[in-house]
């Protein structure tokens, strides 16, 4: 490995074909993200991982690393804007952390804390979104979906199924289920599917497990998302 890029003044080695995100994660540099998971094809939609590559904004999860790139990642400007993008996700859906069983295990919440978000800033949409509790073991709370497509990709790429999809245009976007009735119970989703466990928010939940781990002992209760993510995704890169 002799090629390298520079992120926030630090030399980061990369191999041909790696994205900026992959190179950064492998080197222990955290770039905030929500729709990215190293197991699946990058999507590039949440835009939290936007970094400045030679002065130009690029999504780190999709943009290939290349010799000569000088990248800024953790700057006041980028983190302020990442916070606002996170706030956009909060006002678009209906996220009530204190009453959500995902609290403490939620990437959206953890990223928000990481970025120092203390309010929603933008006016709420208060969209009327539904809950699909038809499946015996898994439920969808559409109020919390951020359209990251991780469940879509996990179902296709890991489970070899096609349970989820995102439908609609613009602000009308919504998660849909591939079954004739449109209900989760009529799809071929199994509780052990990767897609049932991949949701970064509390939109897809496994029933009857919500409070098995008490609040105070959850993933992000004592560590920041950067540490946890690097430990998890750095390891996954090495596989």
């Amino acid at each position: 490995m002799n090629k390298s890029i520079v992120i926030d003044g630090k030399n980061i080695p990369f191999e041909d074909g790696q994205t900026i995100m992959q190179a950064a994660t492998a080197a222990g540099v955290y770039i905030p993200h929500l729709c990215h998971n190293p197991k699946f094809t990058p999507h590039g939609s949440c835009k939290l991982c936007t970094v400045k590559v030679n002065g130009r904004n690029c999504s780190a999860c999709t943009f290939p690393a290349a010799e000569g790139q000088t990248i800024t990642n953790i700057t006041q400007e980028l983190n302020d804007d990442r916070e606002k993008i996170t706030q956009m996700l909060f006002v678009e859906g209906n996220h009530f952390c204190p009453s959500c069983e995902k609290t403490g295990n939620c990437n959206l919440q953890a990223v928000a804390y990481h970025l120092g978000m203390t309010d929603n800033h933008f006016p709420h949409f208060f969209e009327n979104r539904e809950v699909d509790a038809s499946h015996p073991d898994v439920m969808i709370d559409h109020n919390r979906c951020i359209f990251c497509t991780l469940c879509v990709r996990a179902s296709q790429q890991e489970d070899g199924k096609n349970v989820f999809s995102i439908s609609g245009r613009g602000i009308e976007k919504r998660l849909v289920v591939n079954s004739e009735s449109g209900l989760l119970k009529d799809s071929d989703l199994d509780v052990n599917d990767c897609a049932a466990h991949i949701c970064p928010t509390g939109a897809i939940l496994i029933k009857r497990t919500g409070y098995k781990v008490p609040i105070g002992q959850r993933i992000y209760d004592h560590s920041h998302i950067d540490t946890i993510t690097l430990a998890a995704e750095g390891a996954s890169h090495d596989e």
Partner: peptide, 15 residues
């Protein structure tokens, strides 16, 4: 007309 793919445009144009 926003396609809704990315957060800044999907939520931003509506805001």
């Amino acid at each position: 007309e926003s396609c809704g793919f990315c957060t800044p445009c999907r939520v931003g144009t509506s805001l």
